[in-house]
Design a protein around this nucleic acid. Structure first.
Lengths: 356, 356
DNA sequence: AAGAAAAGTGTGTACGAACACACTTTTAAC
DNA sequence: GTTAAAAGTGTGTTCGTACACACTTTTCTT
């Protein structure tokens, strides 16, 4: 059969009657080549549509790219932070044969020193690139200064610190996520219903982050045209302990009857919806992230909407961006907002199964 | 530096003092190898964690895999069918160096014979795999019979025909998409509001398909607990000509005042929302697919929800499934439902930018 | 016990690109 | 007009794997 293979350097050589050595020099713009031959070769490359075979190139160069990732630790396998981690690992796996080697590290959200320790170990290792979720602002700032000093490129995922020379931020538009939550929750409520915003702070909470979400959420209700203003309350629960949650919620609801909907600004909506079930309250709930707890509650119908920020994709995309930067010298887009997936009970399964 | 490379066959050879030829035979379970050496090698593979380098393997085998895709033609570049096509092409591009070669063909939705012609050309070409959107049921049935006779594996994308030996279906759960549309539309409406379902049939419409969507949609309103029943009307517009649309809609609305929401079962919601704007009607609209027309209308706020079935991803995933089947002999999951993305004005941009 | 068949093993070449090296031709210097 | 530097060019080896081929050893057969 024809089965026409791709054109190779040898094809260019045959076509132009020039050795592959010279062609190689033209391709890499290295060494001396006469103008005549150079033009002839460049034409042949166009005419025969030559594209260097990345496989062969990778193989012969034999370069290894070490990527270190530093993400928060998932306290349980069902915890949110296990997802970006899985994404990063999956991404590294995809590019394994291309020389990508991953050193995946985690730090405790309750312990800045664990961050610093791992950061130091990463600097020690002198990797080709770093993937960082910068939840500790002070320590992260210090870390990326060190990276910049050593000219090690890094990308942020899931969160970011402004004003630094990171290659890219891959994560949600946080403010938009709050706004969207507001827009989705509102039509589920009756006219007079009030709203409660629940911030849960576990470990060292990223307060700037939750603040932005809340602002986005309130923005919706400010800008909504023609809608009656709603009463919006907010509480901050400084723990994830169940008893603590129960106590704080009870305190609030006793003082604020008429709450029709709750917006949970992190991945713990399931704690709130469980409370509602236990106390036979008919209150709408919207929260973030397809973690195990939320999945179960959503299935029961006690959570109405989950907004997901493609945590796995964030990880794979981070690796892909670094790889493209290493191999193709392609600067990634500096802000890569992930889609904010709006998920309901009926569409949940599709998201769980599609690990894209 | 350490920069420890991956273990290679040669490493296994050094470790076991056996030649790479024998090791190769163990890996491929071919030829004769003594039990002693075989076990020694298998142990070394485990201990040293050997994984064959896919790049080197691909390079030496030099096999080309021709994939033919047969999708409906996009009449304009903004048309829905340009998206799965782009996905397929992008996917093929990704695996180009691995020997994937794409022959991308389209057929007219108005002309069965164009389907048959292209199908014949594909059979002629005798490709390693086929990607098919089987919108013409009769002709598709004939085609896949031919493929089965020739033992050419094929995957369906976007639509499917049951009872055949396709490798995989990659597309939406059509019924669920209707149900979800119902669930999203309902809370946007006032209590007494009625609903209109618009089916537009262009070319040879896949009537089974739209029927299923409509059934899913109505199912929501049947099973919705505690909700007052809504009046649900439906019209079928046998054309996409604007004047035709205007006439049919006017006819309906004149007879059915009190319609608060419209569900458009294909990608032409923008035609309906434009009508509403022109006639100063305040009616909610939900439809499918992020095509140019819908994007513009959504931006104006005249469409409330778009449900997207990841058309680009469908294409890339189809190629990936075939590639995995060719190279890793991995049978794909037989039904790969894509996530049904629920998109609103505020989340639209993220989806447009993220071509994942 | 000889010889053939079967079982078991190692070597060499190929894939496509990169690069070191060696080699030839041109140019410049005096 | 000789020589050296600069410019220009081709060859050979390498990466990790697959496979054809050649080769050695063991096992049957009669």
């Amino acid at each position: 059969m024809d089965r026409l293979k791709k054109t190779t350097i040898q094809d260019i050589a045959d076509y132009t009657d020039i050795s592959i050595g010279t062609i190689d020099r033209v391709i890499h713009n290295r060494g001396k080549v006469s103008r005549i031959k150079k033009e002839k070769i460049e034409e042949a490359i166009r005419v025969l549509d030559f594209n260097p075979n990345l496989l062969a190139r990778t193989l012969v160069l034999g370069k290894q790219y070490v990527i270190c990732s530093l993400l928060p630790e998932a306290m349980t396998p069902e915890h949110y932070w296990s997802l970006p981690k899985r994404g990063v690992e999956q991404g590294a796996q995809n590019y394994r044969d291309f020389g990508i080697e991953l050193d995946s590290r985690t730090y405790s959200l309750f312990d800045e020193s664990s961050f610093v320790e791992n950061a130091k170990a990463i600097l020690e290792r002198n990797p080709e690139g770093v993937i960082l979720a910068p939840l500790f602002e002070r320590e992260s700032t210090w870390f990326i200064r060190q990276l910049e000093k050593r000219k090690i490129p890094y990308v942020f995922i899931d969160a970011r610190i402004s004003g630094h020379k990171n290659l890219s931020y891959i994560g949600p538009d946080v403010k938009a996520s709050g706004y969207i939550a507001g827009k989705l929750l509102d039509p589920l409520l009756a006219d007079g219903d009030a709203i409660l915003i629940v911030n849960m702070v576990k470990g060292i909470g990223n307060s700037a982050h939750t603040g932005t979400i809340e602002r986005g959420f309130r923005d919706f209700f400010k800008t909504a045209e023609g809608k009656p203003r709603r009463k919006i309350g907010a509480i901050t629960i400084p723990s994830m302990d169940e008893r603590e949650v129960v106590r704080e919620l009870t305190k609030y609801y006793l003082r604020n009857p008429g709450t029709g909907g709750v917006f949970v600004t992190n991945s713990n909506a399931h704690l709130i919806s469980k409370y509602h079930t236990d106390h036979e309250l008919d209150i709408r709930v919207i929260g973030f992230d397809l973690v195990q707890g939320n999945i179960a509650e959503m299935k029961k119908g006690t959570i109405d909407f989950i907004i997901s920020q493609r945590p796995i994709y964030q990880g794979t995309q981070a690796v892909r961006s670094l790889f493209d930067f290493f191999v193709n010298k392609k600067m990634p887009t500096s802000i890569q907002y992930v889609p904010l997936d709006i998920i309901i009970k009926e569409s949940m399964d599709f998201y769980i199964r599609c690990q894209g």
